Computed example of a mutant assay.
Amino acid sequence: MQINPYIFILPKTPTAIVWNYKNHKQYELNLEYSVRLTKLIDDPKIFDNSNPIDTQLLEAEILTDTPSPPINWGWDELSKIFHIGTKNIPCDQMPENADEWASIYLDHCTKTLSTPPPPDRIHKHKADTPLIRLPAPINLSENSLQSALLTRKTCRSFTGESVALQTISTILYLCLGHLNERANNVDESIAKGLEARRSSPSGGGLNACEGFLYAKNIDGLKPGIYAYNASEHTLSTVNTQLKTALGQVLSGQHFINELPAGLFITCRFDKLWWKYEHSRAYRMAYVEAGHISQTYQLVATAMGLSTWLTGAFTDNQVESLLGFEENNPEQVLFFVGCGKSDGQVICRELKSLLNNRG
């Protein structure tokens, strides 16, 4: 007898929640059951078929009499729990054909829409500061997508030269903006209130990701942090005090301090919670952020700028920079920036060290 390797225990007074994250089942154990399980964890050999608690723990698959093969996993337990725990979404009724899928999905959407979706976010910080109207985006129709795809690369050496506000306006609009060009291309399957369309796909069409502009050297825009309002194509002033170097909040990557502009990509988890109850939707948040990041890089590249991106940052410092309150359902997922560069993939400091070793 042994303890199932796919469980974790969450203390939640007055019970202990035993979570089998592989088969998506949870059990509440009172004190008597918790004490017995603790003894079995200490010594599984004391399992007793005549003990009703032991047999119930076995039936619930908290205990197992089948040896489990070693799990091939190179990261920590937390990442393993998340990945395995979001596999194989529980499904009471698996559709056997397209008609059944359509019926089940329609019922799900009808149930979801019985409650209103979370409202669009117009950032409340610096409410005394008027919205900043962005200039009209530049038409990139003559630029080659193939050229942008072939040219795009991650650079780590930026000159600090300023970037035009219209360039930033174009990048924001094509990455996060609600595209006016698609306003008349909405079919009957789109629920009221969810008609807005972006250039990147989004789980459930919810457009859960948002963006905060990091502005250090943008012509016509004071340095600071600005929330991008996708529906209006405007900026709300969030923070005009860039006292901390960008590299300091991005896990010490100080080679990027001269970056003139960037975008913190966030996700409104409350939008995903509204439609998708299962935690697998958490994966979709990062997928959407990845789509937006790639679009940002391609647009910036098409406009003659170099790009850099990272998922390494000190969350609480970034949240403070963005004015997030504790337990905010909007969370920071990624950062991508652009500017003029000498095209070096390796930063000057690292390149110097490598040259000296040679």
Results as ranks from 00 to 15, higher is better:
37 L>W: 05
65 D>W: 04
9 I>E: 12
139 N>Y: 04
50 S>P: 07
4 N>I: 00
92 D>A: 15
62 I>H: 05
49 N>S: 13
101 W>M: 11
105 Y>T: 09
105 Y>Q: 13
101 W>K: 02
31 L>Y: 07
83 H>I: 14
37 L>G: 04
30 N>D: 15
15 T>L: 06
76 D>K: 01
21 Y>R: 01
108 H>T: 10
130 P>D: 07
143 N>I: 01
26 Q>T: 14
3 I>A: 03
135 P>I: 06
24 H>K: 09
40 L>Y: 02
60 A>P: 00
76 D>W: 00
100 E>V: 14
37 L>C: 07
52 P>T: 09
47 F>G: 04
9 I>V: 13
79 S>V: 07
3 I>T: 06
4 N>Y: 00
97 N>L: 04
66 T>P: 00
73 W>Y: 09
134 L>F: 09
113 L>D: 15
47 F>H: 03
73 W>Q: 07
59 E>A: 13
54 D>Y: 09
57 L>F: 14
138 I>L: 12
57 L>C: 11
110 T>D: 15
130 P>Q: 06
47 F>A: 07
126 K>R: 11
33 Y>H: 08
64 T>P: 05
45 K>T: 14
7 I>Y: 05
74 G>R: 06
4 N>A: 01
115 T>F: 04
1 M>G: 07
137 P>C: 01
2 Q>S: 14
17 I>R: 02
11 P>L: 05
53 I>Y: 03
28 E>K: 03
10 L>T: 11
71 I>Q: 10
133 R>W: 07
124 K>N: 13
6 Y>L: 11
114 S>L: 05
132 I>R: 00
108 H>A: 10
5 P>S: 05
68 S>Y: 05
111 K>H: 10
86 T>V: 10
26 Q>K: 08
